[in-house]
């Protein structure tokens, strides 16, 4: 099979979508772990953030891979959504989707779009700020600035609410996405039931944890 045929195939697209999703899940776990440290210790959070911000492997290898991963995941999400919408040109008058599937599974495009919009705000808040700090203003290295920058962002109640709402939609996205990714790469066996439980736990714990961190800094400082 030629490469061009493989890339056009529905199953190849589905597997690519799953693998990029699993990659983003692993990044999210790391991000969550670092953010959680901010609740316990400003120093630990500062040192971890500084490492992430200045380590050349992370900055110039991992970060571009992550950006490509994010872009691939949402572009492929749109491509699949358009293809799937075209597969049914006349809609049902009565469609009872709730009878056989979860809302989260049927509306990944909605939860995904909200998360994408949130990413825009998030990149503006932190990533753009970092780029300006390091490369435009070329300010001196300050290993202790990260905690205060984080806390400052969550002073605004509007931003705290927006972040929290986005995490609710992220939870819905993960509720389906985590387990769906494993099914797509062909993992469906005697361990699947346990994995499903882990997936649902992850989909609740991580977003709720992020909300907790946002509220913690909003009310604590």
């Amino acid at each position: 099979m030629s490469n061009s045929t493989l890339l056009k195939s529905s199953i190849a697209k589905k597997i690519a979508m799953a693998l990029s999703g699993l990659f983003l899940i692993s990044f999210l776990s790391l991000h969550f772990f670092i953010n959680l440290m901010s609740v316990f210790s400003a120093d630990v959070f500062n040192s971890m953030s500084h490492f992430m911000g200045y380590n050349p492997v992370i900055q110039f290898l991992m970060q571009p891979i992550l950006i490509v991963g994010v872009i691939f995941h949402f572009v492929m999400g749109f491509v699949l959504e358009i293809k799937n919408r075209n597969a049914r040109t006349v809609a049902y008058v009565k469609f009872n989707g709730a009878a056989n599937s979860s809302w989260a599974s049927r509306n990944m495009i909605i939860s995904g779009l909200v998360v994408l919009a949130f990413l825009g705000l998030h990149m503006y808040d932190f990533w753009a700020h970092e780029v300006v700090y390091k490369y435009v203003d070329a300010k001196a290295i300050d290993t202790t600035r990260y905690y205060s920058e984080l806390v400052a962002k969550f002073e605004s109640p509007v931003r705290t609410v927006l972040y929290s709402l986005a995490f609710v939609l992220l939870a819905l996205h993960l509720w389906h996405g985590f387990n769906s990714s494993f099914q797509s790469v062909g993992f469906n066996n005697k361990y699947s039931k346990k994995l499903h439980k882990l997936g649902y736990a992850f989909a609740i714990i991580v977003p709720v944890g992020f909300i907790f961190i946002a509220l913690f800094h909003h009310f604590n400082n």
Binding site: K8, S10, I11, K13, L80, K83, N86, N100, S105, S180
Partner: peptide
């Protein structure tokens, strides 16, 4: 799978509705 794609069916997103 090639024939399935050529027929214009959509792509599976694992909603599980088919199994139900």
């Amino acid at each position: 799978v090639k024939q399935m794609d050529e027929e214009g069916f959509g792509n599976c997103t694992n909603t599980g509705a088919c199994e139900v």
